[in-house]
């Protein structure tokens, strides 16, 4: 799209777009292209020798048990994180939307975890869930009777990284949910109340369906967040351990590429990640704006 009324200048528009094109070319297109080429090469760790092998790296990747396990872990981790933080965000937003007084203060008190770095959220929760010093760990041990030890048990470690990642995202979800709720016409709610619908029924039959675009958008954003931005949480809390039980895809790229120096495999993994995010982006643009709407 372009404006009807425009300026004309033979060189200025090029000059204006140049910085953007330059950074995108050097730090996006060239690396992406380079990654694509590298994903089809086998080379030794010192970079002295490389050979073109077509899709062998990808075949090796998808027949590697560890990689398939990492995919499973990532899916579980991101779904659990998204569902936890979205449902808490929705719950708190519903309550805050009912509150008559103090909306501004409530928002202020709920919004700031957005600004906490995932890595710092990891450190805070590492302390809270520490097997010998953590207070939340103590509560889990006492009230649930679980032998809580995220340093040794993979399942506990998974719960730990999910809690740290979900906590930080609650405020993001809250902001969107409350904005979505405030956009719902009051008259609809009032009409339903006149017809005798209880507050709970109004929530299920009016608020939630009308929030479906927000729900879908947040689902996409939360999954992207837990796929990529949780690197800091994993790095500070578990380093992918114990025994690879929290080794999500992004962390595995880093481990294989920078610690294991397996360039071919790491590049192939990057390409897989890029394809995933491209699909998600296309999905989002296709459906978020148009399809998910309340009809009928």
């Amino acid at each position: 799209m372009i404006k009807r009324s425009i300026f004309s200048n033979p060189y200025l528009p090029y000059l204006l777009i140049l910085p953007q094109i330059l950074v995108t070319l050097t730090f996006f297109y060239w690396p992406a292209f380079d990654g694509l080429i590298n994903s089809m090469l086998v080379s030794d760790p010192f970079g002295n020798y490389s050979r073109f092998v077509w899709f062998k790296n990808f075949i090796a990747l998808f027949t590697d048990f560890l990689y398939l396990k990492s995919i499973g872990i990532t899916l579980m981790f991101s779904l659990a994180t998204a569902i936890t933080s979205m449902s808490l965000g929705l719950l708190i937003a519903t309550l805050a939307n009912r509150a008559l007084k103090g909306k501004a203060i409530i928002r202020t008190m709920l919004i700031w975890p957005y600004a906490v770095a995932p890595a710092i959220s990891g450190i805070l929760w590492l302390f809270l869930l520490h097997p010998s010093y953590g207070v939340v760990a103590l509560a889990i041990k006492k009230f649930l009777g679980v032998d809580w030890n995220p340093v040794l048990h993979g399942g506990d470690a998974m719960v730990m990284v999910i809690m740290a990642s979900a906590w930080k995202e609650i405020s993001y979800n809250f902001v969107f949910f409350i904005a979505g709720m405030q956009a719902i016409p009051k008259s609809l709610i009032e009409a339903a109340a006149m017809d005798g619908a209880s507050p709970f029924r109004r929530f299920w039959n009016i608020t939630l369906p009308l929030l479906s675009p927000t729900l879908f958008f947040l689902m996409v954003m939360n999954i992207i967040y837990s796929f990529f931005e949780t690197f800091g949480v994993i790095h500070t809390m578990t380093q992918g351990g114990p025994g690879g039980s929290t080794n999500i895809l992004v962390y595995k790229v880093y481990q294989d590429g920078f610690i294991g120096l397996n360039l071919g495999s790491s590049s192939a993994q990057s390409v897989v990640l890029m394809s995933i995010i491209i699909v998600v982006t296309i999905l989002q643009f296709k459906y978020v704006e148009k399809k998910v709407q309340y009809t009928g």
Binding site: F228, V250, S270, M274
Partner: peptide, 24 residues
């Protein structure tokens, strides 16, 4: 120009770390 910029919309640095590192 628009399409080439638009294509990079959601690709975080995390997915292209190795080649971007080499570039830097």
């Amino acid at each position: 120009a628009f399409i080439s910029v638009f294509c990079t919309l959601m690709l975080p640095v995390e997915v292209r770390i190795l080649p971007t590192y080499e570039m830097a």
